[in-house]
Design a protein around this nucleic acid. Structure first.
Length: 178
DNA sequence: CGAATTTGACCTGCGC
DNA sequence: GCGCAGGTCAAATTCG
């Protein structure tokens, strides 16, 4: 069921916010694309010459995106290891479905309703062992056609499914890099 | 039968 | 210190 794509073609009467809006959380600290070279989805984008950009995501409530801070989930007691920065990459995608299959296998582990959003936010985790990549999918309450997918972490394993399909989808999308 | 989803509870950080 | 909001866990349930 590859229901995504579709909307990307209708670029005629759609505002700049439509299509795909690529944005990086906290470019300030991660503009070096550490490890972004060839890691599945993100790597794919860098191959296409996509440059991380900010200021594309227009979030009225900054609460929605806690960017600029390490998502260290170490509760209270941390092992005192090196500060592992946790970059998060947000993607605004115009799609009618929430599930944007990027080739990896995700297991949903939670769903919460956001305060200023009438739509719930879904939390996914990569099912690969040792792969702690997380992603959360959220829909904008203003434009329910916009789905924001936030990736957290990097995959350290090959994609399980054929990327060809996704590449094809990407080719249909317009990526704004400002 | 195993894997993935669902859903409420629980935990933690932050603001007041 | 309390309450709110976001994030995660885990048991039960459903699906393939």
């Amino acid at each position: 069921m590859e229901n995504y794509s579709t909307y990307f073609s209708s670029s005629s009467s759609t505002p700049p916010t439509s299509s795909l809006t690529l944005s990086m959380a906290d470019s300030h600290a991660y503009n070096e694309l550490q490890g972004l070279k060839s890691n599945g989805f993100l790597g794919l984008m860098s191959q296409m010459g996509v440059v991380p950009a900010v200021s594309n995501i227009d979030v009225p409530q900054s609460r929605s995106f806690t960017v600029g801070s390490e998502t260290d989930v170490n509760s209270g007691k941390k092992k005192g290891e090196k500060k592992i920065r946790k970059p998060r990459y947000a993607f605004q995608t115009r799609s009618q479905v929430d599930i944007l299959d990027d080739g990896y296998r995700w297991r949903k582990y939670g769903q919460k309703a956001v305060k200023n959003n009438k739509f719930p936010r879904s939390y996914y985790r990569c099912t690969h062992q040792g792969c702690n990549v997380k992603k959360q999918v959220q829909r904008l309450t203003k434009d329910e056609a916009i789905v924001v997918t936030t990736y957290e972490g990097m995959h350290s394993h090959p994609i399980e499914k054929s990327t060809d399909n996704f590449e094809h989808i990407l080719s249909q999308m317009q990526i704004y890099t400002s």
